[in-house]
Design a protein around this nucleic acid. Structure first.
Lengths: 138, 138
DNA sequence: CTCTGTGCAAAGCGTTTGCAAACGA
DNA sequence: TCGTTTGCAAACGCTTTGCACAGAG
């Protein structure tokens, strides 16, 4: 796991450091992490981590395409590892973000639906807001 | 035009003021406005407008459902008037946001595609990032 | 050894808040 | 008139920056 992130970083021209691999591991574990939640979590095992370091690295890794920003209605942005297209199910009660994959077929359909002449699509973000299964039980 | 916004405000329990109707007119004219662009624009005709007033009113009108926040990758949120579901085409070169309506039929299809058990959908935001026709010419 | 990355503290901004005066109904 | 809204200025909190030291390759 740790080795993987070290490789990922090097592939993108970044040195592998304790801080960086842990940011990546943390985002992977959380699925989607906010700056603050990442900082809080890593501080538990590495108390001298600086918030500024988290900011600098998130910015850097977004620039390098290792991470993707996920802007969310009424919350601060979260960050996720770059991966194939998917939908975000965002719970307006607890704030959790869940990924929902869609098949190749559905992906194509989306592209057709969202096609527009004279607009060169580079990426898309589909966010569905509602209440998740856990919050629905309450 | 101005009358309409006065009515819209009153329907939502808000007093009609110069500042509020102008914020709404401005967002309508821009399509999507950031706090700052709204403030800049209105200040030209009403120089004593306070930025704090713009903030307070935007927050209030979002709460009342008159406005909707549009969070955008790498930018500050913009705001739009509440309206029927649509797609945002966001130009990563110039930052402009364009709305693309979709038909009832397509809307249904979207809902089917994005269906998930145990998740109660309340709203959706579909953002497509790319370059617009104007920026493509450059 | 060299260059990059980290931590700290300070600076910078965007946003929110409290309050007295102005305004809408 | 009465409750709401505005403008101002201060406070706040998140984010960025500069620099000396530490660490990766």
């Amino acid at each position: 796991m740790q080795k993987n992130y070290a490789v990922l970083l090097k592939e993108n021209g970044l040195k592998s450091t304790f801080q960086r691999t842990h940011i990546l591991e943390n985002i992977h574990a959380l699925g989607h992490g906010s700056i603050d939640s990442i900082y809080q979590k890593i501080t538990q095992i590495h108390p001298t981590l600086s918030l500024a370091t988290v900011y600098k690295n998130i910015v850097l890794m977004v620039e390098k395409g290792v991470l993707v920003e996920v802007p969310i209605l009424g919350q601060k942005s979260k960050y996720e590892l770059s991966k194939k297209e998917h939908i975000h199910l965002i719970c307006t009660a607890c704030g959790e973000v869940e990924d929902q994959d869609y098949t190749e077929e559905k992906a194509k359909l989306f592209h057709q639906l969202t096609q527009k002449e004279n607009f060169h699509l580079s990426s898309q973000q589909i966010n569905l807001y509602g209440t998740c299964h856990l919050c629905n039980k309450i």
